[in-house]
């Protein structure tokens, strides 16, 4: 028995969600008294691979194969199942990322394993029940799932647990899956990426604007705030619908759901659908000229005032703070 964690690297480097997932897997392994294995299919050098050991992986399986620059959930699942068989894993941990969302259900079907997607917390084992908590109703509530299958798959919501370092020696093992070019039925033609900016789903600080900003020309001050704090910008649905901002920035129930450490909502009233996409934020600041705006009820800090007057002053204060630190 063991726990197997599937980690993803981005351009050869692991990001925080990978360390969170290994920490999470190692804690489950400790609970069950078994070993923690990690599997990485992406390109990453030895030092980078070894860094996963610091978070509790006993054995790290890596695949060196150019073919895996392509992404096909069927093929990725095949490799994970090969590692699962070699490590005799009963619990598999993935990250609830774009690719994780694609792989986990395919893998679950193939292994006839129960899947909890977007776990928020470590599982609890009570009277032989294996219980995992996740958000439901787009964050309006949470639910504790009981997993009945022998094999269990959990995909961990990023920013849900804190990565923890331990002293540990990790053993690196190369996995050589028998995969051919023809196994990839999905062919990548082109990758279009916005460069240089922090991606919204990775950002730890998000500055978001709504109709209270009165027009797209006023977004410069939000971008400025995002620059000062090292965050990303976002917007409410109406703003995306009237094309003040691109749809890729729309956060909410039908847009992107985000879980940053700090969410600053400016000129957004806080409709229930918007809250559903941002209520996973650790700290929320609301700036709105209407003291009755429903968003204030969900906020940790609030300022009543016109965005166009408050934001420039706040930017000045943030800038002074950053200079002083």
């Amino acid at each position: 028995m063991s726990v197997l964690v599937f980690v993803e690297a981005s351009e050869g480097k692991f990001k925080k969600p990978a360390f969170e997932a290994v920490t999470y897997g190692a804690k489950i392994a400790a609970m069950l008294g078994v070993e923690t294995h990690a599997l990485c299919i992406d390109e990453a050098d030895e030092a980078e691979l070894r860094s996963l050991g610091d978070y509790g992986a006993n054995k790290l399986w890596f695949v060196k194969n150019e073919l895996f620059k392509n992404f096909d959930p069927l093929v990725f699942s095949k490799v994970i199942i090969q590692a699962e068989a070699q490590t005799n894993s009963d619990v598999l941990v993935l990250i609830q990322s774009y690719n994780g969302k694609a792989i986990a259900p395919v893998l679950a079907a193939k292994l006839r394993a129960g899947l909890v997607s977007g776990a928020l917390d470590l599982p609890r084992i009570e009277n032989n029940s294996f219980l995992v908590k996740k958000n439901v109703f787009s964050g309006k509530a949470s639910a504790t799932y009981e997993m009945h299958s022998a094999k269990k798959i959990i995909s961990l919501m990023p920013n849900s647990i804190i990565p923890e370092k331990t002293v540990n020696n990790v053993e690196l093992v190369e996995l050589k899956p028998e995969i051919a070019d023809t196994d990839f039925k999905i062919k990548i033609k082109e990758v279009v990426k916005a460069s240089g900016t922090t991606t919204l789903s990775d950002a730890e600080i998000v500055i978001s604007g709504g109709r209270g900003l009165k027009g797209p020309e006023n977004w410069a001050m939000l971008e400025e705030m995002a620059n000062i704090l090292g965050g990303a910008t976002a917007c409410s649905r109406p703003v995306a619908d009237i094309h003040w901002r691109p749809h890729t920035e729309h956060v909410g129930q039908t847009g992107i759901a985000i879980r940053p450490n700090l969410y600053i909502a400016i000129g957004i009233s806080g409709a229930i659908q918007h809250l559903a996409g941002v209520n996973g934020s650790k700290v929320m600041v609301v700036i709105n000229k209407d003291p009755e705006a429903p968003f204030f009820k969900a906020a940790d800090y609030g300022i009543v005032g016109d965005a166009l007057e408050v934001v420039p002053k706040l930017n000045e204060a943030f800038r002074k703070f950053k200079l002083g630190n």
């Binding site: 394993a113 909890v116 509530a141 504790t144």
Partner: peptide
């Protein structure tokens, strides 16, 4: 393969 055992509403701020 799974079932929901318990729901919870978020704590009111």
């Amino acid at each position: 393969l799974t079932s929901i055992k318990q729901y919870a509403l978020p704590k009111e701020k």
